[in-house]
Design a protein around this nucleic acid. Structure first.
Lengths: 192, 192
DNA sequence: CTTGGATGAGACAAGAATGTCTCATGCGCG
DNA sequence: CGCGCATGAGACATTCTTGTCTCATCCAAG
């Protein structure tokens, strides 16, 4: 009343808050709601008004991750052209979401048996279909199952995201390293 | 005094406790000290007598993980024969530690800037040396850096460990899938 | 048999995080 | 100008985990 304090009222921007939370939680998955609020530039009260609890926030982040993955899948046009090119497009599109995926990947073990997995199952199915198409066209070897290739792709994206976060790998090399390793492997040869 | 209850006194076995803790924490990284104690078959009091706190327990698990990694590196005889065979031996040897490594990998982000990393640095250095040897002998391609190949190996081991834990991949396929993908990639070809 | 050591069970306080509440402030809108 | 709404700040109780403690029990060594 007596103090004429000039406060900065930050209007609530759901997308901005979610991305701030993702950026923080990717590095410190145990961050407090208070830390998340500070990272997003809002107060804990406002954060709690829009996300009733930590689990709601994590679920929202999961939905965002699914959304970004499916957007990347769409943008990559997996059905067009050689599988190798589709995969290169996909990794390039999915790179910005690598940090969020790393967080969700480590958090997923907590969702054991609960719902909200239909989104991941859709994504899984589309990737499996991509790898299966590559096998049926003769472009990919058939002794590595599509399910394992899907796991490996996620694993490389996640570990690549962490390596970039920690500065062990340059961000600009991210798509090249992942696609080259996943497609061609480490062995040197004269092949295609 | 009046009750003649027959209790089962579990003698303390440090290794057994650590492995029980690792098995639980690999699936639920936020497990309580109480849950860890129950999983190890001892009381929380005894657990706390031997590991003064949660951080001490995690550090002990980290030391165990480093120990098992270095044992696997030794057993794989990385300096002998073709790099591809050395890598196959390594993955085979490191498979039993995949669960523990998955937990430590997700927990590592909490050790930011602190000590205890010299063990991981030693392991990293040995893996980098292995990949470098493969590049210099012409066995491995040179456009994938040894640092990235090391990251990718860890990423594949970790994601493979999780996939096995969740039943998405058969445990017996673990070494084959990882080594084949890491060495040969997904593309089909006539190469060696 | 007796004694010392280690364990299990449980109580207890301290601390952290969460969820809920109130109140004052700032901003947009009529 | 005045009003309503959303925010920021902070207090508060609750819950969970942790760390410490005590005591009874069991086992093995002497």
């Amino acid at each position: 009343m007596s103090h004429a304090r000039y406060l900065c009222l930050m209007p609530f921007d759901r997308d901005r808050v979610l991305r701030g939370a993702a950026a923080l939680l990717a590095r410190k998955s145990t961050a407090t709601m208070d830390e998340v609020a500070k990272a997003a530039g809002i107060s804990r009260a406002t954060l709690h008004r829009h996300f009733a609890g930590r689990d709601v926030l994590v679920r929202a982040l999961e939905a965002l991750g699914i959304e970004e993955c499916e957007a990347a899948l769409d943008a990559a046009r997996l059905d067009e052209g050689p599988v190798r090119d589709a995969l290169r497009r996909l990794v390039r599109e999915i790179e910005p979401a690598a940090g969020l995926l790393s967080f969700l990947y480590s958090e997923n073990q907590l969702f054991e048996g609960e719902g909200q997995n239909e989104g991941w199952e859709r994504i899984d199915a589309r990737l499996v279909a991509l790898f299966r198409r590559g096998q049926e066209s003769g472009e990919l070897r058939i002794d590595l199952t599509p399910a394992w290739l899907t796991e490996a792709l996620f694993g490389l994206v996640v570990s690549g995201g962490w390596a970039v976060l920690d500065g062990r790998v340059a961000a600009k090399d991210f798509p090249f390293m992942i696609t080259e390793l996943l497609l061609g492997g480490a062995l040197r040869r004269e092949g295609p």
